[in-house]
Simulated scan of single mutants.
Amino acid sequence: MVDGIRSSVWFYRAIFVGLAAALLFLKLLPLGSLAGDWPGPDLLLCLIFAWVVRRPDFLPALLIATVVLLEDLLLMRPPGLWTALVLLATEFIRSRAALTRELAFVTEWLLVAGVMVALLIAYRLAFAVSFLPQPGFGFALLQTLWSVLCYPIVVAASRLAFDLRKPATGEVDAYGQRL
């Protein structure tokens, strides 16, 4: 019975929404918000990438867009910019699902790190083109580096807590469809 629930796509989608809400709540708490503090990693971005690499069918584009747009609105960022960039990045990774299935973890980590750096550059470039004020480049780069370093921890936690793994080649779901 439990195996049937855990194999449900909706179960994992609900878990993702719950984790995203918890991460947003923690991000909104006024903890360690002194000027000049080191930025923390973007754990929601790490979680999205880890889940899209492992099981792209668990996170549809609409769910990702909704969660990230809500994050944009709550964190008072320009609505939709970060959402569009994250959606493009996840679709880029999703389109390479067959390739990433066969990659070693270090190569996958480098792919995700490259996508995170590309997101940083695209986000800052959009701010520069529209002449919006932005935090220092070192601050944003440090947050991206923390996110890259936290990615393996998020992957390990997802594997241990939710048994989220890459499907094996030729693996089928309960309906006989290839994963």
Rank of each mutant, 00 (worst) to 15 (best):
Y123S: 10
A126M: 10
R96M: 01
R96S: 00
T107I: 14
F92R: 07
L111G: 00
L69P: 03
L75M: 14
W146T: 04
M116S: 06
V67S: 05
A113F: 04
L85N: 04
A113D: 06
P133D: 03
V86E: 00
L149S: 08
G114E: 11
A89V: 07
V86D: 01
L88G: 04
E91S: 13
L74T: 13
G136L: 04
A104N: 04
T144M: 14
A113E: 05
A98C: 03
A104Q: 06
G138N: 12
V117Y: 05
F127E: 12
F127K: 14
F127A: 15
R96E: 00
G136S: 10
I121N: 10
L74V: 13
L125F: 15
L75I: 06
S95R: 14
L73T: 12
Q134D: 12
L99T: 07
F137P: 08
L111Q: 02
V68T: 13
T66C: 11
R94Q: 07
L132D: 10
E108R: 07
V148K: 06
V148W: 06
V106G: 00
W146S: 09
T100M: 12
E108W: 03
F105V: 06
L99K: 08
L85V: 07
V117Q: 05
M116I: 15
L142H: 04
L99Y: 07
I93C: 01
W146E: 05
V67C: 10
A89G: 08
L70Q: 01
E91V: 14
I121H: 11
F92Y: 13
L88A: 11
V115T: 12
L88M: 11
L87P: 09
R96L: 02
A118E: 00
L145H: 04
V129Q: 12
A113I: 07
V148F: 08
L132Y: 13
A113R: 03
Y123L: 08
V67K: 03
A140Q: 10
L88C: 11
S130Y: 13
Q143R: 15
L110N: 02
A118R: 01
L87D: 04
G136T: 04
L87I: 15
L142G: 02
L119G: 05
T83R: 08
A140T: 07
E91A: 11
R124W: 03
S95V: 14
V115I: 15
L88H: 01
L103I: 07
R77E: 06
V129L: 15
S147I: 03
P135M: 07
F92P: 01
V106D: 01
D72R: 10
R77A: 05
A98P: 00
L142E: 03
L132R: 15
M76T: 12
T100P: 01
G138C: 09
P78W: 11
A97F: 02
T66Y: 10
L120N: 05
L99C: 01
Y123I: 01
G136M: 02
F137R: 11
Y123K: 04
L142D: 01
T144G: 07
L70C: 08
L142Y: 05
P79Q: 07
W82K: 05
L132P: 11
P79H: 08
V106I: 08
V68L: 03
L99G: 01
